[in-house]
Amino acid sequence: MDISNSLIGALGMEVVEVGEGKVIMTMPVDERTRQPFGFLHGGASVALAETAASIGTAALIDMQQEVCFGLEINANHIKAKKEGTVTAIAEVAHRGRTTMVWEIRIEDEHQQLICLSRCTVAVVPKK
């Protein structure tokens, strides 16, 4: 999977770990991910959360027969951040046949909560 020409590459996201029902990813807080006032953009946090949930879902399905898409996401932005790195820890909360629900904690380098998100990912047959 080539991620260099995708949102993942554009925002500097990196996959740290993909396990059974768990994904860990990082993203820098820099000029690519800040809003005009100098803080981490909420949309960048949401992009990181949905990406982690989607990668986690892809790891749990048969990608030869199925594909997955983000269906719904919510996010509570808890703390502002100006620089450094954030880490998304995504864990599957519901593993269904047609949907999966993921809980994603985005933390800073000191394990302080930056954003708490929940994402539902749809699983559909390839046509």
Results as ranks from 00 to 15, higher is better:
58 A>P: 06
33 T>L: 06
16 V>N: 11
41 H>R: 08
55 I>R: 10
68 C>W: 06
72 E>L: 02
127 K>V: 15
69 F>M: 15
51 T>P: 06
26 T>S: 04
84 G>E: 02
58 A>M: 15
109 E>P: 03
57 T>A: 11
69 F>A: 15
45 S>F: 07
74 N>G: 15
60 L>E: 13
17 E>K: 10
47 A>S: 15
64 Q>Y: 12
74 N>L: 05
109 E>D: 12
23 V>Y: 05
24 I>Y: 01
42 G>S: 08
61 I>N: 09
127 K>E: 13
24 I>D: 00
75 A>K: 05
49 A>C: 09
90 A>Y: 08
77 H>N: 04
29 V>N: 07
88 A>E: 05
56 G>S: 08
3 I>R: 14
63 M>T: 15
24 I>M: 03
95 R>P: 00
96 G>S: 07
25 M>R: 11
49 A>S: 10
59 A>L: 07
56 G>I: 07
7 L>R: 11
120 T>A: 04
98 T>V: 12
122 A>I: 08
77 H>P: 10
54 S>D: 11
28 P>W: 03
107 E>L: 13
108 D>N: 04
117 S>R: 06
74 N>V: 02
46 V>W: 03
64 Q>M: 12
81 K>M: 15
53 A>D: 07
90 A>Q: 09
94 H>Y: 12
46 V>F: 13
57 T>D: 13
9 G>Q: 02
67 V>K: 15
84 G>A: 00
10 A>Q: 14
77 H>A: 03
30 D>K: 09
16 V>C: 15
46 V>K: 04
84 G>P: 03
113 L>Y: 02
45 S>N: 13
33 T>D: 10
114 I>A: 02
47 A>H: 11
68 C>S: 15
106 I>N: 02
33 T>Y: 07
90 A>R: 09
22 K>S: 09
59 A>M: 08
47 A>G: 08
113 L>G: 03
105 R>S: 09
69 F>H: 11
106 I>P: 01
1 M>A: 14
120 T>K: 14
71 L>D: 08
48 L>C: 05
47 A>Q: 08
2 D>R: 05
102 W>H: 00
80 A>G: 13
85 T>E: 14
112 Q>R: 14
42 G>M: 08
8 I>G: 00
78 I>H: 01
21 G>M: 04
89 I>W: 05
70 G>R: 05
12 G>N: 09
69 F>C: 09
97 R>D: 12
